[in-house]
Simulated assay, not measured.
Amino acid sequence: MTRIVFAPDSFKGTITAADAAAVLADAWQSVDPEAQVLLRPMADGGEGTVAAFAAAVPGAERMPVTIDGPAGSPVQTSWLLLPASPDALAGTAVIDMASTSGIELLDELRPWDADSSGFGQAIAAALDHGVARLVLGIGSSASTDGGTGMLRALGARFFDAAGLDAVAGARGLADIATVDLSELRTAPEVRVLTDVTNPLTGPRGAAAVFGPQKGLTERADQDRTDAALAHLATLLRLDPTTPGSGAAGGVGGALVVWGATLVPGAEEVARLIGLADAIATADVVVTGEGSYDGQSGDGKVPSFVASLAADAGVPVMLVAGRIDEDADTGIFAASASLTDLAGSSAAALGDPRRWLREAGKQLAR
Rank of each mutant, 00 (worst) to 15 (best):
residue 3 R to F: 05
residue 18 A to M: 12
residue 19 D to R: 15
residue 24 L to S: 12
residue 26 D to I: 01
residue 27 A to D: 03
residue 28 W to M: 08
residue 37 V to L: 14
residue 41 P to N: 09
residue 42 M to Y: 11
residue 43 A to K: 06
residue 44 D to Y: 11
residue 47 E to W: 14
residue 53 F to T: 00
residue 54 A to M: 01
residue 55 A to K: 05
residue 58 P to L: 13
residue 59 G to C: 14
residue 65 V to H: 02
residue 71 A to V: 05
residue 79 W to V: 02
residue 88 A to L: 08
residue 93 A to L: 01
residue 95 I to F: 02
residue 97 M to H: 08
residue 99 S to M: 09
residue 100 T to N: 15
residue 103 I to K: 04
residue 103 I to Y: 03
residue 113 D to H: 15
residue 115 D to L: 05
residue 121 Q to E: 01
residue 125 A to C: 11
residue 126 A to K: 02
residue 129 H to V: 12
residue 154 L to G: 01
residue 157 R to V: 03
residue 158 F to L: 07
residue 164 L to P: 00
residue 169 G to V: 12
residue 171 R to A: 12
residue 173 L to H: 06
residue 174 A to P: 01
residue 175 D to E: 10
residue 178 T to A: 13
residue 182 S to R: 14
residue 188 P to F: 15
residue 192 V to G: 09
residue 193 L to N: 13
residue 194 T to N: 06
residue 194 T to Q: 08
residue 194 T to Y: 12
residue 199 P to A: 06
residue 202 G to T: 11
residue 213 Q to Y: 07
residue 215 G to R: 14
residue 216 L to C: 07
residue 220 A to M: 07
residue 221 D to P: 03
residue 225 T to M: 07
residue 230 A to K: 09
residue 230 A to G: 05
residue 231 H to F: 02
residue 232 L to W: 02
residue 239 D to N: 14
residue 241 T to E: 14
residue 242 T to A: 12
residue 251 V to R: 02
residue 253 G to W: 00
residue 258 W to K: 04
residue 258 W to G: 02
residue 260 A to K: 03
residue 264 P to M: 14
residue 265 G to K: 03
residue 274 G to L: 08
residue 275 L to Q: 13
residue 276 A to R: 14
residue 279 I to E: 03
residue 282 A to Q: 08
residue 282 A to I: 01
residue 282 A to W: 07
residue 288 G to R: 09
residue 290 G to N: 08
residue 291 S to H: 14
residue 293 D to F: 13
residue 297 G to V: 04
residue 299 G to K: 00
residue 303 S to Y: 15
residue 308 L to V: 05
residue 308 L to C: 12
residue 316 V to H: 03
residue 319 V to S: 04
residue 322 R to K: 13
residue 326 D to H: 07
residue 328 D to I: 04
residue 334 A to F: 04
residue 335 S to E: 11
residue 336 A to D: 02
residue 338 L to A: 11
residue 339 T to K: 12
residue 343 G to I: 09
residue 348 A to L: 09
residue 350 G to T: 09
residue 353 R to L: 00
residue 354 R to V: 04
residue 356 L to E: 13
residue 359 A to F: 03
residue 365 R to E: 15
